[in-house]
Design a protein around this nucleic acid. Structure first.
Length: 313
DNA sequence: TTCCAGGCCCATG
DNA sequence: CATGGGCATGGA
């Protein structure tokens, strides 16, 4: 056992410590509209960004990036990263146009949209997104973040040191396959360790091509991803939405399921089958329902306006 | 202490 | 095809 490997509780105390941005750091100003950096990076799509006083520091692939939003219409981006960041943050998505395709008379969606109108669907690296969501099943967002950071620290390539804090890239499939199931389990993964290890191994050995789903339609891509261990419809759809630009998929997790039942089937919520919920989502929210899903999810989780839905930070 | 978490797998009707 | 139990771990 490597003595440098600390217990999870120690990791939790130390790893989220934010590297302080230096006062002299330069930046590029980048005008934006319909964009909310904090809502986007804190909406449960991604789990590794460090935030302090509105400044977000993190890795996009293997690149250290610093982003902040000093005013609604302006981003500060670390120099040289403008293109990388705008692609990752999907600044080219025409939110106004997509919002016009949403159902007109939906007060619930309208409320969620008003809560965080600038929340965008990211373009994440495929493997990082898939692997993170494999570790997400039956876990709270805060714990997914812990697991993600621990995996990075133990098996990811160190990219940069900022004020004494080392930031690591997400470990490659090869690194996780080589690490072994037991070492993954020691990161607090529980039963998910086997799934993550098996999926990483399959990809590392060349028995699954993460680019293959990109050539298929949404349904076929989902079925293909679901052939991987630990990947079912929900995780496959989150991956398609957050890493394959499939804005028409609608992942249904426990939050969305309760929100849909409570908001759209009030009174008969207990009698609605899972099949009916899926049908409703597809027919009601339109071609960009992935966005609708994310606005509803973020509002349901963090607004505290639901009586029966517990607020989790 | 008990309940629950951005579910999946597998065994039954 | 739909439903139910089991599953590891840690925070509330």
């Amino acid at each position: 056992m490597n003595p440098r490997i600390k217990g999870l509780s120690d990791i939790h105390r130390t790893s989220p410590a934010l590297p302080k941005p230096t006062a002299s750091s330069s930046f590029t100003l980048f005008p934006v509209t319909h964009f909310d950096l904090a809502a986007t990076l804190n909406s449960g799509q991604v789990f590794h960004w460090h935030e302090q006083d509105g400044v977000f520091l993190g890795l996009i692939g293997g690149e250290l990036v610093r982003v902040s939003q000093p005013e609604p219409g302006m981003l500060q981006i670390s120099p040289g990263h403008e293109e990388l960041v705008s692609r990752y943050l999907a600044l080219d998505h025409d939110l106004a146009k997509m919002q016009r395709t949403l159902p007109k008379r939906d007060a619930h969606l309208k409320r969620a949209l008003k809560y965080s109108p600038g929340l965008r669907i990211l373009r994440q690296p495929r493997w990082e997104c898939l692997a993170t969501f494999i570790t997400s099943s039956l876990k709270q967002v805060a714990h997914i973040r812990q697991i993600s950071l621990t995996l990075r620290e133990r098996f990811g390539h160190p990219v940069a040191t900022v004020n004494g804090v080392v930031l690591h890239a997400y470990p490659t499939p090869e690194a996780l396959a080589q690490a072994g199931e037991a070492a993954l389990r020691a990161c607090g993964l529980g039963y998910r360790a086997k799934f993550l290890h098996q999926t990483a191994s399959r990809i590392a050995e060349g028995n699954f091509d993460l680019e293959a789903p990109a050539a298929l339609d949404d349904e076929a891509a989902c079925e293909l991803l679901c052939t991987l261990p630990g990947v079912g419809p929900k995780i496959a759809q989150c991956t398609l939405l957050f890493a394959y630009e499939r804005l028409g998929v609608f992942p249904i997790d426990v939050w969305i399921e309760r929100a849909l039942r409570e908001l759209y089937f009030a009174g008969a919520a207990e009698n609605v089958s899972a099949r009916e919920l899926r049908e409703f989502a597809v027919t009601h929210f339109g071609p960009f329902r992935g966005y609708a899903q994310q606005w509803l999810f973020h509002h349901a989780r963090t607004s505290g306006t639901f009586s029966r839905l517990r607020k989790v930070v």
